[in-house]
């Protein structure tokens, strides 16, 4: 769809806004609706929009398959690492209370990291699934 100049210009305008909105949803999830899952999907949709307009081949140059695969596992590892950090600092698995100076600070750190892990895995998954589907020779 590269030769549709309206689509191309509008999507180039929209992609930064979508990415920014995804980050807002990610880090504002403590205060409003949203969180890692929604943020990950919105973040991925920016890459998917790029792939739809400019083609999967060029989108793969922006985010190669090796990068999505690493991010895919990194999110899950980050989540699990927060859980294990709870054990190391003397609590139970996924016990955030021990992560900070007091319980509330620990909970804030734990929730932030855990949501980040969810967001990264979800975003990488959606990008991977779409690119793999769209990249099939039809």
């Amino acid at each position: 769809m590269k030769h549709f100049s309206v689509l191309r210009v509008i999507s180039k305008l929209m992609i930064p806004v979508i990415l920014l909105f995804a980050l807002y949803v990610q880090f504002h999830g403590d205060f409003g609706p949203g969180g890692g899952f929604q943020a990950g999907v919105i973040f991925a949709s920016a890459f998917i929009l790029y792939a739809l307009i400019f083609g999967v081949h060029y989108a793969r140059k922006v985010i190669p398959s090796s990068a999505t695969r690493i991010l895919l596992s990194f999110g899950v590892i980050l989540y699990t690492a927060v859980g294990i950090a709870g054990i190391i600092f003397g609590g139970n698995f996924l016990d955030y209370n021990v992560l900070g100076q007091n319980n509330i600070a620990g909970q804030h750190i734990g929730i932030l990291l855990v949501e980040l892990g969810v967001g990264i895995t979800v975003a990488a998954t959606m990008i991977t699934v779409f690119f793999v589907f769209a990249g099939q020779e039809s």
Partner: peptide, 25 residues
Amino acid sequence: IPNIVTSILASYRGYDTLGETFVIF
């Protein structure tokens, strides 16, 4: 944190959300 949904999902039910993340993975 003000959003109770987030505190349930990420903290009280953190183990469930870990499982969901693994499902997506």
